[in-house]
């Protein structure tokens, strides 16, 4: 997902007997669906895991501006340009809410940014794939925002109050994005032969990377078990991936496009589609920095940060001067 493979304690979930009194009270609150707020006591590992998870999610929103920003200046109509601008602006706003939620846990946005640029913190693997034709704007909205929604809708119920509230605001906008993406796909799929070709090509390239967004199977992961006990993760990666496939296959059929998986078929017994797993080696390569666009994405963010330094310093200096002037009056 936007937060893939977030590590928690590395140990198993503690039994009630192993917990301290504070930990027991904390777990009771979570089990009773009472939200944890910034001033409440929380285990250090809960705080750290959340910082990693929310931070990774925030970074994904920010880096996620780039593949779509790549087409803003080439949008084919004034209306499409406006829709895309509004979408990318929303994503930046999502980054803002999420950084604010993470800041309530005691890390600053600047610290998290430095960690992103140094490679210490990650962002979703999906944004390391290139956007090559206009149909990619459709595929990203339809598939990438679609996969994000799968994960984020349950997270509206997550145990940490500020995170949950950020998710509620974000989810409203994400469903818009998905509909707009699907609308682009529809226009392309019903368009000229070249447009149809672009649409199919976009689906071919984005299908497996979208499945990777949910992360590798975590049914046996100790990190996931702990995160689920803390309700900062609600479903397993496989559950969400299956749900995504089941939802997306009929949508692709409706567009007249084919999913690039010859083994995809309805399994009446399971009541789900059977499908081919993505190439997890490719996923780990991308996570390690060897995706098609890792260098560009991080390079862009680093340049923006470095070249913006004088602006941040200038505005800060001015604010200080003003404050001093007001104090002197």
């Amino acid at each position: 997902m936007y937060a893939q493979m977030v590590k928690s304690t590395g140990k198993g979930v503690k039994t009630r007997e192993e917990m301290s009194e504070d930990e027991r009270a904390f777990q009771d609150k979570i089990d009773a669906d009472t939200k944890i707020e910034p001033r409440d006591w929380m285990p250090e590992e809960y705080r750290k895991t959340l910082v990693r998870q929310i931070g990774q999610h925030a970074h994904s929103e920010i880096v996620g501006q780039l593949p779509e920003g790549n087409w803003i200046t080439r949008a084919p109509t004034l209306e499409r340009k406006m829709i895309l601008l509004a979408k990318v602006q929303d994503e930046a706003g999502h980054g803002l809410y999420l950084y604010a939620a993470a800041e309530t846990l005691g890390v600053s946005r600047d610290e998290m940014t430095e960690d992103l640029l140094s490679g210490k913190m990650k962002y979703s693997s999906i944004f390391n794939y290139p956007t090559l034709t206009w149909a990619d704007m459709g595929a990203v909205g339809w598939l990438v925002d679609g996969a994000a929604i799968m994960n984020q809708v349950p997270l509206q119920r997550t145990s940490y109050g500020p995170y949950s509230r950020a998710m509620i605001r974000i989810c409203k906008e994400e469903s818009f994005h998905q509909r707009q993406g699907y609308d682009i796909m529809m226009k392309m799929a019903q368009g000229s032969p070249e447009q149809k070709r672009m649409a199919q090509d976009a689906l071919n390239r984005f299908w497996y990377p979208s499945l990777m967004m949910f992360g590798p199977s975590d049914a046996d992961s100790v990190h996931s078990a702990q995160s689920m006990a803390w309700k900062i993760k609600i479903n397993t990666n496989d559950e969400l991936r299956q749900k995504f496939v089941d939802q997306t296959v009929p949508q692709a059929e409706y567009l007249g496009l084919s999913i690039p998986d010859p083994d995809l078929k309805w399994n009446a017994e399971r009541g789900h589609y059977d499908f081919t797993e993505p190439d997890w080696q490719e996923f780990f390569d991308v996570i390690k920095g060897n995706g098609p666009c890792n260098t560009e994405r991080l390079g862009d963010r680093t340049r923006a940060w470095e070249e913006g330094r004088w602006v941040r310093e200038g505005l800060m200096a001015h604010a200080n001067k003003r404050a001093a002037r007001i104090a002197a009056e």
Partner: peptide
């Protein structure tokens, strides 16, 4: 719009 994603602060 050419600035998208490259500004000095969010």
């Amino acid at each position: 719009s050419e600035w998208c994603g490259h500004a000095p602060v969010l």
